[in-house]
């Protein structure tokens, strides 16, 4: 943890207390016809831990994510979340406490930022049509709570006062943050971030890093897919490297960073070793 961020110290102490297995994916395999996109991958995530998932393009990282979140039903293997088998329905996965963001941002473009976050509260609220039409006390209470929580979350991710903008009109970095806020609105215990810094400039990346640390410190487990190695190694307690659907290496950031197989997977077989530093 060589980053000079203000939350880094707190983070170090944060994840030592009460490590509990949050997510256990064992031997997950996903086949599309003859193509094996994810091949016997296992991953364990503990509370208060950030796990990085790296690997070259097409390694099956996002497919693995989709298996975890119920978008795909794995061909074989099982995913347990908080000691319970995860149902293979995205909605039930969210209710169970797992939320995600998307690699290519998938906000609701023609809703305001606030509304986007409020949609995230959907699964934690329950007023149905008739209460909504009659504006019963339960509806009023829930609606007020939803709004309040959404405003809080926008502030939490650093978008205070931007709730009224349409999601599609927000700058790129804010869209990424809004997606995280929307995911947080579902009260998750585990957050899956699919390339949260793709397309960001160094400053935005640093802000994202700080935000992710902040979320981790609140006790949430995080799995993050990234290509930005500096980001991954600053952020992650453990890193797993996928290559062609298989787990190549799993270990601490330093272990994975120095593993020659990882370097080879990214930049090919060594001709000149000097490329390794930039990997």
């Amino acid at each position: 943890m060589s980053i000079d961020s203000p939350v880094a110290g707190a983070a170090a102490s944060g994840h030592e207390v009460g490590k509990r297995e949050m997510l256990v994916a064992s031997h997950v395999t996903m086949r599309f016809g003859g193509l094996v996109a994810v091949d016997d991958v296992s991953l364990t995530v503990h509370t208060g831990e950030i796990v990085g998932l790296i690997g070259p393009n097409g390694a099956g990282k996002t497919t693995f994510f989709n298996c975890l979140t119920g978008l795909y039903k794995p061909t074989s293997g099982e995913v347990r979340f908080a000691d319970r088998l995860l149902p293979p329905k995205p909605r039930q996965v969210v209710v169970a406490g797992m939320a995600r963001t998307f690699q290519n941002i998938r906000l609701f473009p023609n809703m305001t930022a606030l509304e986007n976050v409020m949609v995230g509260r959907y699964c934690r609220t329950s007023s149905m049509a008739v209460t909504s039409i009659l504006r019963g006390p339960k509806y009023r209470r829930e609606e007020a709570e939803t709004r309040e929580r959404a405003v809080e979350l926008l502030e939490y991710v650093g978008m205070k006062g931007q709730g009224g903008h349409l999601a599609r009109n927000l700058p790129y970095g804010d869209q990424r943050r809004l997606e995280i806020a929307r995911a947080l609105a579902t009260d998750p215990q585990l957050l899956l971030l699919d390339e949260p810094t793709a397309g960001m400039n160094p400053q935005e990346t640093r802000q994202a890093e700080e935000l992710i640390f902040k979320i981790r410190d609140s006790g949430m487990a995080i799995v993050v897919i990234e290509h930005d190695m500096r980001f991954i190694f600053n952020l992650c307690d453990r890193v797993s490297c996928l290559v062609r659907g298989k787990t190549l290496v799993e270990g601490t950031a330093a272990q994975v960073q120095s593993d020659p197989r990882v370097i080879e997977a990214y930049i090919g077989s060594p001709e000149g070793e000097d490329g390794a530093e930039n990997a």
């Binding site: 909605r91 969210v94 906000l107 949609v119 699964c123 579902t186």
Partner: peptide, 8 residues
Amino acid sequence: AAEAMGVN
């Protein structure tokens, strides 16, 4: 995305 955010 709606489905993935828990919307029924």
